[in-house]
Design a binder for these strands. Structure first.
Lengths: 122, 122
DNA sequence: TCGGTTTACTTTACGCTACAAGGTAAGTGG
DNA sequence: CCACTTACCTTGTAGCGTAAAGTAAACCGA
């Protein structure tokens, strides 16, 4: 039960923002809640997004106008900052999803056509 | 007919090495040849890999032992440096392809489950 | 010998983002 | 005031893709 190996950072670049924004379509959420929700969505790959990645990411997206935020008290401890998708954010998300589809399609056609090509060294 | 918009850099990270190594399964190739071959493979997305991206990439992979190279004269001009996959490289490529499949699968399940979801609130 | 041409490879500086590690902040209850 | 809980923030580092410009090695004709 060692779990799956960690995914290479580089492979996640430019994907995490899409992942987070997509999650926010379900409704506003805050830092810890987002991490938790991603853990549920991704199952075995929980922890794919790190805390020190998420917060700067949220700030970037907010700076660009894709997210808006407000504070709200929690049950205990420091109040939470909830983020929600803006209209601009939804539009941006749409283009990111389309881009993902294009790239994924491209690579499926090129990379995955011969899953275990044996080496053809002859 | 402006062609497809450029793909975000970030989305390509950690993918280009896989793309190049996969191409080299077809046989040894050199810088310009690789660029050309990728252009053919990717069709409309020709130029997805830039010259100033490819050469450092080849050097990295060679430093790590995944590629080996030798020089050979071309028809005209400077001689070419051909790269080929080493055994280590083939193994590495296998893990990268598996990783790609895992990530692509994850995102297909989470991101793409509602292709054009208009906001689905309610 | 010397440019000029073709082909191919190299280098520099920069920007973005993921991360680890550690810190800070704002509540509650003793 | 202090400890505890929950949540957020910051600093520094590293990797990789890119534009722009430069270098290198072959051949050619005058």
């Amino acid at each position: 039960m060692s779990g799956p190996p960690d995914i290479d950072d580089q492979l996640l670049r430019g994907l995490l923002d899409t992942l987070v924004m997509d999650l926010l379509r379900e409704g506003p959420n805050y830092g810890f809640g987002i991490l938790e929700a991603l853990g549920e969505r991704l199952g075995e790959d929980a922890g794919i997004v790190k805390e020190s990645t998420l917060y700067p990411l949220l700030h970037r997206l907010a700076d660009r106008g894709y997210l808006a935020s407000h504070q709200e008290p929690g049950d205990r401890g420091r109040p939470r900052r909830y983020y929600r998708l803006t209209d601009e954010g939804q539009e941006f998300l749409g283009t990111r999803l389309a881009e993902w589809r294009r790239v994924a399609g491209l690579l499926d056609r090129t990379l995955l056509r011969s899953p275990g090509l044996p080496t053809s060294t002859s």
